[in-house]
Amino acid sequence: AHHSAMSPEEFISRIMEAEPPEIYLMEDMKKPFTEASMMMSLTNLADKELVLMISWAKKIPGFVELSLADQIHLLKCCWLEILMLGLMWRSVDHPGKLIFSPDFKLNREEGQCVEGIMEIFDMLLAATSRFRELKLQREEYVCLKAMILLNSNLCTSSPQTAEELESRNKLLRLLDSVIDALVWAISKLGLSTQQQTLRLGHLTMLLSHIRHVSNKGMDHLSSMKRKNVVLVYDLLLEMLDAST
């Protein structure tokens, strides 16, 4: 069925099914970390996750109907935000820890070995705490992730051709479906109408923090690459080059 004909419940069930599987770093961790070893583990994991992220995006109803140019632009704009929201979701029940993968968990203090990363860890932990306070539900999490993807490029491009305009209109309708799905997910929590409106506001306001941390993270990774602390390759290199 086309996403516009789906009920919010159906739409959420489709994006829940699209969720990527758990991913393992599968490296022999030599502790204590060095700046290079920690950066290498983080970028290796990000590269693996990126491949799965493309597969995830393609499973979001309506995404592959957008123009290929829009699909590329959206993914290159939001990839680090998506990785960070996933990290927050995995870490939400582990205060003070960042669960990058089941076999790669870091305490805040372990960030000390990489110059400039502690500040980013603190921002990630703070946003995770906020999600913990709000008792983020899985249905809400999957909607927020889809919202990040579809909203990522909305204010940085303006359609010129008829094809671009058509894709943009499809994108806006798709965002409507995701917003409807999030509203529906919130409505299932047994809150008053006012509390539902407030929750929607609080959840969507967190997205601006995630964009901010992602921008910081992007600058940090670019600087680590420039200083040759870490070798960035494959899909991650393509995404990073695209965004610097």
Binding site: V51, L235, A242
Partner: peptide, 24 residues
């Protein structure tokens, strides 16, 4: 540089009907 050349892997993964997991 065209979008396709600049984002070779991303383009390939988006266009390919095979699961990216298999490609990886």
């Amino acid at each position: 540089t065209s979008l396709k050349e600049k984002h070779k892997i991303l383009h390939q993964l988006l266009q390919n009907s095979t699961s990216p997991v298999d490609l990886a």
